[in-house]
Design a protein around this nucleic acid. Sequence first.
DNA 1: ATGTAC
Length: 472
Amino acid sequence: MELVEESPYRFRIDRRDPMRVPGVVFASEALLPDVGADRSLEQVAAVATLPGIVDASFAMPDVHLGYGFPIGGVAATDVAAGGVVSPGGVGFDISCGVRLLAADLDLAGLRPRLEAVMDGLGGATPRGAGRGAVWHVTGRSDLDGVLREGSRYAVQRGFGVGRDLERCEDHGALDDADPGAVSPRAVERGATQVGSLGSGNHFLEVQSVAEVYDHDVATTFGLWPGQVCVMIHCGSRGLGHQICTDYVRRMEKAMRRYDIQVPDRQLACAPVESPEGHDYLGAMAAAANYARANRQLLTHVARVVFRRVTGGNLDLVYDVSHNQAKIETHGVDGERRTLCVHRKGATRALPPGHPDLPADLCDVGQPVLIPGSMGTASYVLAGVPGAPAFASTCHGAGRVQSRKQAVRAERGQDPHRQLAARDVAVRGASRRGLAEEMPAAYKDISAVVEATEGAGLCRKVARLMPIGVVKG
DNA sequence: ATGTAC
């Protein structure tokens, strides 16, 4: 595995058979994975062998090992040229993403009520593996609404306001969801988890705006220094997981029929224009809508708590997912092409002027929400014109230790105390769960953001610091 | 990420 430095923050993995395109890694020297100890760049090269892939197999500065595709990876295939879709290119947590809410309150105003807010959020947010949900859906019709219409359905049922949808990617729902392509088992798992945080790196965090880098853009996004915010990071729970499992299995079998060979079984895929490809994209869109409704319901809960304790409101800044495949139009070799863009641990970052942006954000570009590791900063970024990698950027800090390694490194320590020392109030989370998510298990989020900006993928708007966190 | 297992 040889890396050629093309420009600062951009490295190339030269194409060699059976790669169809080169690999491109956006990173600083310091953030580059150690090719001796880390297989994530081999995964970047393996993705480059997929039928129909165009331009390059991309890795973001937060790249790390994933199932088949690396996390922090972007790959686009040309639909008309037999391009494939791969469940491993989306990940198990379909449409996992981030939502940022801005309070009409500053940090000083929150301080006296912080414990009450945290107790309220901790008590009202269903979290952890399995157990509990905001919305106990009964029968298939409510769940169908969630799968077909995502946040739009949640708002229609009273869990939010119309303006929320203007600030959601795709206005809160992907259009081509096919609940019929979702297995009964996935539906069964999903029915009891609508409006729940989950576990692992998912969280609901109370934050404050610690620094603003671009005052005008921050103002347009509705953000100002010292302001209190709530960030929600969660996904499609057991439903998305089951859909990924179902379709990996189905595509493993289908590949022989399409005469597709991949260097790793975990890269199972099928042509976008095939029954398997169509069904996966329909099921994936249903899971994506489930994830968006999930974040909408947790928003509702947070608003109820804030209203009760502070008397104030929470306005949606933006909601964007970082695990998804989307059919998009991009210029490739001077031609407009219909592509299936896989973003796995990578965030869409639309440039200023893009038609899919809400009218009031059109001049400044899409808000990009980057959660840091627990107890560290999170960032608000903005899309920039002419960015590479199909308008995509990083999604977070990126793991450097496995969960097991992180738990071992925390042995004999008290993670609760360490977070208290950082002035972060914690609600929920097992000792082990916290140990797995300590900052030492992740790259430095600020270094990741510097590299994405240096690579021309996006630009900084604001840095947020955590005050309190609700964990699974 | 995940009813941390089919």
